[in-house]
């Protein structure tokens, strides 16, 4: 449990985001956001409540909401499209999540652990859901009919008549140069740093991967020069 000053700090982080004033104009408690919120239909979660907490600067309950509630949001942004004040409750949640990570909140670490595979794929390959991730033992709930033709995954992918899609461990083929450019973006925008904060093991794996790819790219560039 954080002390009041820490909670105030967290709130200051949230409201200093440049989007904050765009996404929170006021609130009359009309309930349109919660009405259209998919999460509110199943969780005791209410975008109206999140907006109210921020609007009334209730730092203790904001902190409280960041432990659990903000992760219930499905980020569909229906709330933003509907709000008569043009607030974006979903956008505010996104800011709160960023801050939860920047501050290394335990809640964020807990929530995101099972999401690590997607992050790993994204950070290393530049695309997210690859065919080899959809293994039956990861998705028993998707049923036995997950695929209607039996066969080796590699062959099935080869049977997709678009060359760039015939991959197994990425969604599409990404050029080495593109990957390396993306790593530069991660480094320069602090994404790798927040990953390190969230999950050190995952970060180590990713770092090794990136280094390897960079070396490959250097080698490739040298080869080009030699030619």
């Amino acid at each position: 449990m954080a002390n009041y000053a820490e909670m105030q700090q967290i709130f200051d982080d949230i409201r200093s985001d440049f989007r904050y004033d765009h996404e929170l104009n006021g609130c009359l408690n009309c309930g349109v956001c919660t009405a259209t919120c998919p999460s509110a239909h199943f969780y005791d979660y209410s975008p109206r409540e999140i907006v109210q907490l921020l609007w009334t600067e209730n730092v203790e309950q904001i902190y409280d909401a960041m432990q659990e509630k903000i992760w219930a949001c499905a980020q569909c942004m229906t709330c933003a499209a509907r709000c008569p004040f043009k607030n974006s409750p979903g956008g505010l949640v996104a800011i709160m999540r960023e801050v939860a990570i920047a501050r290394g909140l335990q809640s964020a670490k807990d929530v995101l652990r099972p999401f690590g595979r997607v992050m790993l794929k994204l950070i290393t390959t530049g695309n997210q859901l690859s065919p080899d991730m959809i293994q039956p033992d990861h998705f028993p709930d998707w049923g036995p009919n997950i695929q209607k033709v039996e066969g080796d995954l590699k062959v099935l992918r080869k049977a997709i008549p678009v060359k760039t899609l015939q991959t197994v461990d990425t969604a599409w083929e990404v050029s080495l140069k593109t990957s390396v450019e993306m790593y530069t973006i991660w480094e320069m925008t602090g994404v790798l740093k927040s990953l390190e904060m969230m999950d050190e093991n995952l970060f180590d794996v990713i770092e090794d991967f990136i280094d390897e790819k960079k070396e490959d790219y250097e080698d490739w560039l040298e080869e080009q020069d030699e030619d």
Binding site: N29, C30, G31, V32, C33, A35, T36, S46, R48, P84
Partner: peptide, 22 residues
């Protein structure tokens, strides 16, 4: 006390109003 978000129709032709009872 609710501002309605959307109005649609149900299978039997009645209208459905969607809101949050605040």
């Amino acid at each position: 006390k609710a501002r309605i978000a959307e109005v649609t129709t149900s299978g039997d032709g009645r209208l459905l109003v969607k809101g949050e009872d605040t």
